[in-house]
């Protein structure tokens, strides 16, 4: 029982990070129909940028975050501007292919600057720990969970209630209609990528605190993709649910069947969900009426 509780909690904690990263993925897909397979490498780069501020420049947590998050935003915007904007109007498949190669470029960039070995371990939120019942929780983990969840809630509220969030949802529905209302579609694309960059950066920082800052962080981004599909590609709320589910399954299966089984299990679940609900749990079905 104690073991189960422990892996469930670990799963939800990781899951909240997957969910956060998946929101970024969903956002880009919604506004521009591009599946951004480089999301995981944006996460990697974002995490390393934070590490640079925190460890290399020895800044405190808050200033490091205040510098890293806008950097993440700029990273997203720059990626869109440099690689995808010139392709607007080209077949989607070429844009999607570009994001795959972009992954290699980003990874190359990171290795070029910081090398391929894991970076020096840093504490981000503090070293303490406490127990709930018989389960030990570290400060790092609890804070990571809190930040991931808080960020998700902020993003959801942003989509629901702000004009910009609403405009993003509008762009997802039809570019020409939105343009006819005077809303700049390109600006919305940019901002979507910027937010995806921030979400990836936060996810990267949180994962870095628990797993260490190392190239393997990019794999987290890969797990965010099934999370987004399970939730329904168009739904930020769905992405959260998908993230938690993926985190939970990975953790529980790894716990009982060994580490190697975790990730394959999530893909089995992904395929099952796709068979039963092709649009995911909260995806938008096409409205067909005569």
């Amino acid at each position: 029982m104690e073991f189960l509780g422990k892996i469930v909690i670990a799963g939800l904690m990781n899951g909240s990070i997957y969910g956060l990263v998946a929101i970024g993925f969903v956002l880009v897909y919604k506004s521009s129909s591009v599946l951004n397979f480089s999301q995981g490498y944006m996460l990697l780069l974002g995490a390393y940028i934070f590490w640079f501020f925190k460890a290399s420049l020895k800044l405190d947590l808050l200033p490091s975050l205040l510098l890293a998050l806008p950097s993440g935003f700029l990273m997203g915007i720059a990626i869109e501007r440099i690689t995808l904007r010139p392709l607007i109007g080209q077949p989607l498949i070429s844009m999607i292919t570009v994001t795959i190669f972009l992954s290699l470029v980003l990874e190359g960039l990171v290795s070029l600057i910081w090398g391929t070995y894991p970076l020096e371990q840093i504490t981000v939120f503090g070293r303490g720990s406490g127990t709930v019942g018989s389960i030990v929780l570290t400060t790092e983990n609890v804070c990571a969970f809190g930040v991931a969840f808080g960020a998700m809630v902020v993003l959801i509220l942003f989509f629901r209630y702000t004009n910009l969030g609403l405009a993003m949802r509008g762009v997802a529905e039809g570019h020409q209609i939105v343009q006819s209302m005077g809303i700049g579609v390109r600006r919305i694309f940019s901002i979507s990528w910027g937010i995806a960059g921030v979400a990836a950066t936060i996810g990267g920082i949180l994962m870095g605190t628990t797993l260490g800052f190392q190239l393997g962080l990019s794999h987290i981004g890969l797990l965010a993709i099934p999370a987004a599909f399970i939730g329904g590609l168009e739904s930020p709320e769905g992405a959260i649910l998908g993230g938690l589910l993926i985190g939970l399954i990975e953790s529980v299966v790894s716990g009982y069947l060994g580490n190697a089984a975790g990730v394959p299990a999530t893909f089995v679940v992904l395929i099952l969900v796709m068979l039963i609900r092709p649009y995911g749990f909260f995806g938008l079905e096409r409205i067909e009426r005569v």
């Binding site: 004009n163 609403l166 405009a167 949802r169 509008g170 529905e173 039809g174 020409q176 209609i177 939105v178 006819s180 209302m181 005077g182 809303i183 938008l284 409205i287």
Partner: peptide
């Protein structure tokens, strides 16, 4: 100058009021 496009172009998955709010975006 605002064009109302041919064929009742609404943003299907948004509610009526959300459509209107977007109309007032600018």
């Amino acid at each position: 100058i605002i064009q109302v496009m041919e064929g009742r172009q609404v943003l299907e998955h948004l509610t009526v009021e959300e459509n209107l709010r977007l109309g007032g975006y600018i």
